[in-house]
Design a protein around this nucleic acid. Structure first.
Length: 357
DNA sequence: GGCGTTACGGTTGAT
DNA sequence: GAATCAACCGTAACG
């Protein structure tokens, strides 16, 4: 898991197949684009395939987030306790009811919508497995009832939080020594089909559920897909815990980038130790900090389409995001204004290449 | 040459 | 605990 491996793409960039680019790179792609740098030049500069640049920028424009989507997992189950409860009621009211009739009633009563209504076979299974013996106490009714889920669709935030938001017992999440542990990463609701909703990716739940945001301080490193909920306030600096940890150094080596600057708003723990590859580990970001402090910290990056505000940390004013599509005057690198170069060189230590070497 | 799209091989996490 | 499935990833190639 922690082993170092990676591949080199045609541009000489290092990547790990199947894994997202580091947040730092993703952020820089967006930043450079906001500065009016063409995607092809961003691709060359960061040594990321143009397809990837295009994808990240498209996603950013669409969702306001540069974070990767939630990898793995399954869609939320449609047989929610509420659905089961209703099915039981239907069955009790009419023992001869057919599964397809139940399905229709679930739709008609607004318990489900067309997107999350269980299939007839699912209903049959529910009837067989969960309702077949009505004398048995119901597992759901004995527990806390979930929030109302009528007409729940995949586009809603599915109550996909872990049973225990604190869940420090997550055995898979080792807390590697020397690796800063971050906060507020658990219990990110997952939504389908789009896992890229701003609220989802940015972990807005931290706003609505401060307890969840705090939960992560219990030493439960964030899943990478949970970066969005990393609470910057809990780790003042990227290397503040143990100074420069090895992973951060590795990152700088393999991704020659001015981490000293970048890490100021891309803290080290964005890639959880459990998800870090050697080539990717190190400073990464909570520049999209969902914590409730981010609006009051430093420069905020706002996304024009979503209205989302991305925490800019210590991003310099020249990096205030502009929306390229609205600038309308995207300039080729060769004609980059001096300010842009200075912004990039000064802020990121980037030496912008020109399109034609 | 730039860029959107997509096939591909890969990873991840829930079931 | 392994297998399966379905989500995601970035690259490379195509148009």
């Amino acid at each position: 898991m922690e082993q170092t491996y990676g591949e080199v793409n045609q541009l000489g960039g290092v990547f790990v197949n199947g894994r997202p680019l580091p947040n730092a790179i993703r952020l820089r792609i967006v930043e450079l684009a906001q500065l009016g740098i063409r995607p092809c030049d961003i691709s060359r500069q960061l040594r990321v395939s143009h397809g990837c640049v295009s994808k990240i920028l498209a996603r950013y424009n669409e969702t306001g987030s540069i974070l990767p989507g939630a990898i793995g997992g399954s869609k939320p189950r449609v047989t929610t306790p509420n659905v089961v409860k209703n099915i039981r009621e239907y069955k009790q009211g009419d023992p001869g009811i057919f599964a397809w009739e139940i399905r229709d009633r679930l739709l008609a009563d607004g318990v489900c919508d067309k997107y999350n209504v269980p299939s007839v076979s699912s209903i049959s299974r529910i009837l067989r497995n969960k309702i077949g013996n009505l004398s048995q106490p119901n597992q759901y009714e004995n527990s806390k009832q979930p929030p109302p889920q009528s007409a729940l669709s995949y586009n809603h935030i599915y109550p996909y939080s872990y049973p225990n938001a604190m869940s420090p017992t997550g055995t898979k999440m080792s807390n590697a020594p020397g690796v800063p542990v971050t906060a507020g990463h658990m219990s990110i609701p997952r939504a389908w089909p789009s896992a890229h909703t701003v609220t989802n990716i940015l972990g807005i739940r931290a706003f609505m559920d401060p307890a969840a945001a705090i939960a992560g301080t219990e030493g439960y490193p964030p899943k990478m897909e949970d970066w969005g909920s990393v609470n910057r306030t809990t780790f003042p600096t990227a290397h503040g815990v143990n100074g420069l940890d090895k992973s951060a150094i590795d990152n700088d080596i393999k991704y020659p980038q001015p981490s000293s600057t970048l890490s100021s708003y891309v803290p080290a723990c964005a890639y959880s130790p459990s998800n870090q590859y050697g080539v990717y580990s190190g400073p990464a970001g909570s520049y999209v900090t969902p914590g409730h402090h981010w609006q009051s910290q430093g420069t905020a990056l706002s996304h024009p389409a979503s209205g989302m505000t991305m925490h800019g940390g210590e991003i310099h004013p020249p990096l205030s995001f502009k929306h390229p599509s609205r600038d309308g005057d995207r300039k080729p690198p060769s004609s980059l204004i001096k300010q842009q170069h200075e912004a990039l060189n000064g802020v990121h230590g980037l030496s912008l290449p020109t399109s034609s070497p």
